[in-house]
């Protein structure tokens, strides 16, 4: 039985430079394994150890995701092997295209009992990929998960919802979105780093898997994000009591303190 972890190799958008004409420059950013997915990999390691399952990482993206540094970074975190779909066509893939690609990878792998992934994409923060992938596979999906135990294809899960901590029981195969604080992702130790390069890393293209990417709309233009323009009124704070009084009357005048 295989436990699969879908991980992302991407840059943090905070490090991108957006020019006033909407050009987004990621050249000064360095891609990393998303912190959210590192947590999912750690959970996968615990489960693989407990069940004896194979732990396989999958990822989809442009050139960068198939580089040695990317695959080794993933393997160093405890995956037994990685399976990567790398293709220029995936450079700007959104949630739907990425999910379609990962589905093909999972079909290709076979014998998958559980898929784990972090709860957010590093670069879009949308938190929907796991559900789209579940829909394509026809498998149940649960998110905000803190704890998973497996017994064959029987899974016991604990997850947080607004009403509290919910205990669930499911039959696999299943997709699970793991919360960012479910477990603490271990820092890869020296032995893990040095042995990463010896573990298998399989790279395929979209053509190899027979994937045709779905359309995700046509981008007409991109602009820098501008929030509503703010007044930026500075209140003199030499005398805190006076500053407070001034702020209160300004807020009252603006109607912000109406009950």
């Amino acid at each position: 039985m295989r436990i699969v972890v879908a991980y992302q190799w991407a840059c943090d958008p905070q490090e991108a430079l957006v020019s006033s004409d909407g050009k987004i420059d990621f050249s000064r950013a360095k891609p990393t394994i998303s912190d959210y997915d590192a947590v999912a990999i750690e959970m996968g390691c615990h489960l693989a150890e407990a069940t004896g399952a194979e732990l396989i990482g999958i990822s989809a993206g442009g050139e960068a995701v198939a580089t040695a540094i990317a695959t080794k970074a993933a393997l160093a975190r405890g995956l037994h092997e990685v399976f990567v779909v790398s293709d220029p066509g995936l450079d700007s893939a959104g949630t739907l295209a990425t999910a379609v690609t990962l589905k093909a990878a999972i079909d290709n792998l076979g014998d998958v009992g559980l898929l784990l992934t972090g709860d957010s994409s590093l670069d879009s923060g949308s938190k929907t990929l796991v559900a789209v992938l579940a829909g394509l596979l026809g498998w149940p999906c649960v998110t905000d998960v803190m704890k998973v135990t497996m017994d064959g294809d029987s899974l016991t899960i604990e997850r947080t919802i607004p009403e509290g901590i919910q205990g669930l029981h499911l039959h696999g195969p299943v997709l699970v979105g793991v919360t960012s604080d479910a477990v603490k992702a271990k820092v890869p130790g020296m032995k893990d780093v040095l042995s990463a390069g010896k573990k298998p890393a399989r790279v395929v293209s979209l053509l190899d898997l027979g994937v045709r990417l779905p359309g995700e709309g046509e981008i007409l233009s991109v602009e820098k994000m501008a929030g509503p323009s703010r007044q930026q009124i500075r209140i003199n704070t030499e005398d805190p009591a006076q500053a407070a009084a001034e702020l209160v009357s300004a807020l009252r005048a603006a109607g912000a303190l109406d009950a």
Binding site: T32, A68, I69, K72, A73, A76, V187, P188, G189, M190, V193, L194, A196, G197
Partner: peptide, 18 residues
């Protein structure tokens, strides 16, 4: 090498946290 870069990022992550 890739390994040395990964060693750097691991030890950096560890050092900043612990």
């Amino acid at each position: 090498t890739d390994e040395q870069e990964l060693i750097r990022s691991s030890v950096r992550e560890f050092s900043e946290a612990e």
